[in-house]
Design a protein around this nucleic acid. Structure first.
Length: 215
DNA sequence: TGGACGATCCCCT
DNA sequence: GGGGATCGTCCAT
């Protein structure tokens, strides 16, 4: 597959974070990795804003979260639980400190490499030659924020990467308008009495994460 | 200098 | 549905 994608302009990322989060649904993230072109369609995101107790930026800038305070259009990658990376799209102007967490994507291109990164192989558990396996199996490659990073080879080396550059970027298909049904819920793993509905996903999309959402 | 904990995932029951 | 893995980060001594 070789989609003709046009990169989103810097102005896309400078808008209000919740708006950017919703608009990222249906867009394509691309990482040129080990000579391969890994592509995923974004199907689930979460917004993290200033004055938001759940945001890494809430207590101000630190060595870990400094990229969150860069100008919109950069990639903020952090390490968590001693073993996982998560990728965020920085939004708004320099110094604000807001971002959108990429929670799940639909694998589009480079599935073989994604499986290699995730420690699985094509055809495992049956299937014909050239078959990547069941829907469920493919979804399991990238239906969670740390899974996305592992499958796409995203780690701390990409922290601060320019999303309007060539190595890793987000784009959309030229001349295609697609109507998307967007669902909203509270964010995953956030404990707060007044948690906002800042998790957004494409409704009825099988690649959305299976993470439990507390009521 | 140390202890608590996390925007998670996977395996086990 | 529950718990363990595993370590960087942050804040309180």
């Amino acid at each position: 597959m070789n989609l003709a994608l046009s990169k989103l302009p810097p102005s896309f990322y400078l808008r209000p974070t919740v708006q950017v989060a919703r608009d990222l649904l249906g867009k394509y993230i691309v990482h040129k990795f080990k000579g391969k072109r890994l592509v995923g369609r974004i199907v689930e995101v979460e917004a993290y804003c200033r004055n938001d107790p759940a945001s890494h930026s809430y207590r101000g800038q630190t060595e870990r979260n400094r990229v969150m305070f860069w100008t919109g259009g950069h990639l903020y990658v952090y390490f968590t639980y001693g073993m996982h990376f998560c990728a965020n799209v920085v939004t708004r102007n320099e110094g604000v400190g807001e971002a959108v967490l990429l929670r799940a994507v639909e694998p589009v291109d480079g599935l073989k490499e994604m499986m290699k990164q995730r420690g699985t192989t094509p055809q495992e558990g049956g299937g014909q030659a050239g078959d990547y396996g069941s829907y469920r199996r493919i979804a399991n490659l990238t239906n969670g924020p740390a899974k996305v990073c592992e499958a796409f080879g995203i780690d701390r080396r990409l922290n601060g990467a320019d999303l309007t550059g060539n190595r890793v970027f987000i784009g959309e298909i030229k001349n295609r308008y697609e109507k998307i049904k967007i669902g909203a819920s509270t964010r995953v793993g956030i404990v707060s009495g007044q948690e906002k509905m800042w998790r957004f996903y494409i409704k009825e999309n099988p690649f959305v994460s299976k993470a439990k959402v507390h009521p």
